[in-house]
Design a protein around this nucleic acid. Structure first.
Length: 296
DNA sequence: CTGGTCTCCTGATCGC
DNA sequence: TGCGATCAGGAGACCA
């Protein structure tokens, strides 16, 4: 599932291809994947210009697990536009040369939006958004200011987890009395930590997931901040070394097959002490940890 | 405001 | 081999 490392990797691979590209046409197959900040789905008609039709892409930004495609309008009088994307659990954004065979068969299922682009170097490209489970979606905004200010945009997201500093992490997470695991998952506190990396970061910092934020010592905050940044950065590095050309890639399956030390290993021996790892639900999420290496 | 629970959705996996 | 049950989970809605 796409977490921050996958999204950051996507951003880095998309940017050189998309920056300077003109969106020639957009085909929306499922209207309800277009969401509007403040409501579950777009109530009114979706205009293709909201999905960047006619615009030139200038940049791609990321905060947490959210991606923003930033575009200029074609006419000098019109305002720019921004399209935010969230991949949810199963979302994928794929780019192929337009000359490549169209997606067919099973792969065509759940393709909710298609863009036809002309890259800065003139290459014709096709981009598709595919999301079987539809937890992801597309959020149109008028501008970057709009995205940053509007509730439902990035205004509610905390600082990005990849560069989170000890002091900020502590200030942010101390706002709640929830278990530290649940607090880490709350995107308004820190943006970008999902279930996998929350467990991995807590294991790496030897902190029990049920610990309360106000109970943590300064050294533990330092370890946790370093672990959050570390596990995310290592995953990005692993992804970056295994993929060559996203444009030619048929997908990102198995991209981040880095071995997790706790996630998905419930009942298996802890890599530190060989005791079986514990599994319980915290914050409505399956949580795996070691009672010995992460004392409560 | 806070914290807990529910809901959305489909594909993978499990048990029989 | 088939098939129903179960599970996974990001984030917003909803409620006490």
């Amino acid at each position: 599932m796409p977490e921050l490392p996958e999204i950051e990797h996507l951003r880095r691979t998309l940017a050189p291809v998309l920056i300077g590209a003109r969106v020639l046409s957009v085909r929306l197959r499922r209207r309800d994947i277009v969401r509007v900040a403040g409501s579950r789905i777009a109530r009114r008609g979706v205009r293709m210009r909201d999905l960047l039709e006619g615009a030139v892409i200038r940049d791609i930004a990321r905060r947490g697990k959210s991606l923003a495609v930033i575009a200029d309008a074609e006419s000098a009088t019109a305002a720019g536009r921004v399209l935010a994307l969230h991949m949810g659990m199963t979302g994928r954004l794929l780019i192929t040369p337009q000359s490549a065979p169209r997606v067919r068969g099973d792969a065509r299922r759940h393709v909710h939006c298609e863009w036809v682009l002309r890259a800065a170097d003139g290459r014709p490209l096709r981009m598709i958004f595919r999301d079987p489970r539809r937890f992801g979606g597309l959020w149109p905004f008028d501008s970057m200011d709009d995205l940053l200010a509007r509730p439902g945009g990035w205004s509610r997201l905390g600082p990005d987890a990849l560069t989170i500093e000890t002091r900020t992490l502590r200030e942010r997470l101390s706002r709640t009395s929830q278990p530290i695991k649940a607090a880490l998952l709350n995107q308004t506190h820190v943006a970008g930590v999902g279930n996998i990396y929350a467990d991995e970061a807590l294991f790496a910092s030897r902190i029990h997931p049920m610990r309360r934020p106000d109970d943590l010592a300064p050294g533990e905050w330092r370890r946790m901040a370093a672990a959050v940044r570390g596990v995310l950065q290592r995953a990005i590095d692993a992804g970056g070394s295994t993929i060559r050309d996203y444009v030619d890639a048929s997908g990102a399956e198995g991209l981040f097959a880095v071995e997790h030390r706790v996630y998905g290993r419930g009942g298996l021996p802890c890599v530190g002490c060989r005791r079986p790892l514990n599994v319980r639900t915290i914050g409505q999420r399956t949580t795996v940890y070691c009672t010995r290496c992460q004392p409560s």
